[in-house]
């Protein structure tokens, strides 16, 4: 067995331990007394982790490359902001409505999948992202146009406002990312996730197995949009100010670069890609000008040399049957031998 296989087995056998360590470290992070700047970077990483996890559902598992996810992000941010400022709703109810609203827009964007495949669909998603931005710019009466919206209130919990100072924002970001991650894992490890992957692998064969491919593709868009909407709804109060230019095509393109760098179709790749591409420009300020050039180079080089992404290997671990089933299979003598 090769090195990745061994590493995987090593980590997999101790996964509960490692999960616990990672979660404890993340939870204890504020105690290390990092600067506000560092904590802010951590929050941005978690926002982008959500965005890449969302993209991963459509592009990674279902194989429908969406360049419009920045649009869902914008819809989430604006919906939450406007509800908080104009309707005086709490952050929490705004979050829910924003997620739902983004989900509905994902449903609408998913509908063209009835007819379109591959690059054509990708172009339509790109057009969608731009249309969202144009609506935000031109629908002045609601969105305040290009001026954007200022003074977005921070979320509060039991009367305590969640800020950078009390690390409330950090923990909120952490909890949201954790929930999104668990949700994605649950979806992927079910017939829904299998149907997504089957569509990516061979859409016609998937149809021939009775999978209602259109329904699942639309579902993938809805889930992706909902999660992106949650990320947007969190982003707006975090920065306190949004305008249409916070949501240009560059956002969608950045999410795609992250996901491709990490490895579409894996969850580990999403966290890695988000962290790498957020931290990288920060530690190499002198390269700041070249930041987007480097994003571009990443795409080109990855496609050429490692299209599956840096962390995008097929796991060598055996399929997990679960204890109950394993016992049952062993009892009837048909426990499949390991690789």
């Amino acid at each position: 067995m090769d090195i990745t296989g061994r590493l995987e087995r090593f980590f997999s056998q101790r996964r509960i331990f490692f999960f616990a360590v990672v979660i404890a470290l993340l939870a204890a992070l504020p105690a290390f007394g990092f600067s506000r700047y560092i904590m802010r970077i951590c929050i941005v990483i978690s926002i982008y982790s959500m965005l890449t996890l969302a993209l991963n559902l459509v592009a990674g598992y279902t194989g429908q490359l969406s360049m419009g996810n920045g649009g869902f992000y914008a819809i989430g941010a604006y919906t939450a902001t406007l509800l908080m400022i104009n309707a005086g709703l709490s952050f929490w109810s705004s979050l829910v409505v924003a997620a739902a609203f983004a989900g509905i827009s994902g449903f609408l964007l998913g509908l063209p999948t009835l007819r379109l495949k591959g690059s054509y669909l990708t172009i339509v998603t790109l057009g969608f992202g731009e249309i969202v931005r144009m609506i935000l710019m031109n629908w002045d009466t609601v969105t305040n146009g290009t001026l954007g919206v200022r003074n977005i209130p921070l979320p509060s919990l039991f009367g305590v406002s969640l800020s950078f100072t009390n690390h409330g924002l950090y923990y909120l970001a952490l909890v949201l990312t954790a929930l999104v991650s668990v949700f994605c894992a649950l979806v992927i490890n079910s017939k829904v996730g299998r149907a997504f992957i089957a569509i990516r692998e061979d859409e016609i064969a998937a149809q021939m197995m009775g999978i209602k491919t259109v329904r699942y593709k639309v579902l993938a868009f809805v889930l992706s949009a909902t999660i992106s909407g949650i990320a947007g709804a969190f982003y707006a109060p975090m920065v306190g100010y949004i305008d249409p230019n916070s949501f240009t095509f560059d956002i969608s393109s950045q999410i795609i670069s992250m996901a491709i760098l990490g490895g579409l179709g894996t969850m580990r790749g999403m966290y890695f890609g988000a962290a790498a591409l957020i931290v990288f420009p920060e530690v190499s300020r002198f390269l700041m000008d070249y930041r987007f050039v480097i994003y571009g180079l990443i795409l080109v080089l990855m496609m050429r040399f490692r299209p599956q992404g840096l962390l995008g290997w097929r796991t060598r671990l055996p399929y997990r049957f679960g204890k109950v089933l394993e016992r049952q299979l062993a009892a009837e003598g048909s426990l499949p031998p390991l690789l």
């Binding site: 299998r194 061979d202 197995m209």
Partner: peptide, 22 residues
Amino acid sequence: RLFRNMRVIENVLIGSHIREPY
């Protein structure tokens, strides 16, 4: 036309997709 990046067992489970009532 198999689902090449899925496991053997997963390919069969895709076959039983329509028998999953949840």
